[in-house]
Simulated assay, not measured.
Amino acid sequence: MRLIVFDYFRAIAILSIVAGHCISYKSITSFDERVIANLIQGGSPLFVFISGFFFHHIFYRQFQYSQFMLKKVKNVLLPYVFLSLLALIYYLSSGISLPDAKELGITSLANWQDYLSMIGLYLWTGRTSFAYWYIPFIMLIFLMSPLFISYIRQGVRIRLLIFIIALVLAMIVHRPAGNLSPWHAVMYFLPMYLLGILVSMHREPVQRYLHNKAFILGVTVVFLAILQALIYLGFGNLHKLHPFTFDGLDILILQKIVLCFFFLSLLEKLSEHYPQIPLLRLLADASFAIYFIHPWVLIALVEYKWLPNVENMSGLHQFIITFPLTILISMTLAYVIKRCAGQYSRSLTGW
Score class of each variant (00 low, 15 high):
residue 114 D to E: 10
residue 96 I to E: 01
residue 119 I to R: 05
residue 85 L to V: 10
residue 122 Y to C: 03
residue 115 Y to I: 10
residue 122 Y to S: 03
residue 88 L to V: 00
residue 125 T to K: 00
residue 81 V to T: 05
residue 88 L to R: 03
residue 108 S to R: 10
residue 81 V to P: 03
residue 102 K to P: 02
residue 108 S to A: 14
residue 101 A to H: 15
residue 82 F to P: 06
residue 96 I to Y: 08
residue 124 W to Y: 07
residue 116 L to I: 14
residue 113 Q to E: 11
residue 122 Y to F: 08
residue 82 F to N: 07
residue 107 T to G: 12
residue 95 G to M: 06
residue 82 F to T: 10
residue 111 N to H: 12
residue 116 L to C: 11
residue 90 Y to R: 14
residue 108 S to F: 14
residue 112 W to P: 00
residue 122 Y to V: 03
residue 114 D to H: 14
residue 93 S to D: 02
residue 84 S to I: 08
residue 109 L to Y: 06
residue 126 G to L: 00
residue 120 G to F: 09
residue 116 L to A: 08
residue 81 V to Y: 02
residue 94 S to P: 09
residue 114 D to C: 09
residue 123 L to Q: 05
residue 96 I to N: 02
residue 98 L to S: 05
residue 99 P to E: 02
residue 122 Y to L: 03
residue 120 G to T: 07
residue 107 T to L: 14
residue 96 I to R: 15
residue 96 I to D: 01
residue 107 T to A: 11
residue 124 W to C: 10
residue 106 I to N: 07
residue 124 W to S: 11
residue 90 Y to H: 08
residue 128 T to E: 04
residue 91 Y to M: 07
residue 88 L to I: 07
residue 81 V to M: 01
residue 105 G to W: 04
residue 92 L to K: 11
residue 119 I to W: 00
residue 104 L to W: 09
residue 118 M to P: 05
residue 104 L to T: 09
residue 119 I to D: 05
residue 98 L to H: 04
residue 103 E to S: 13
residue 87 A to M: 04
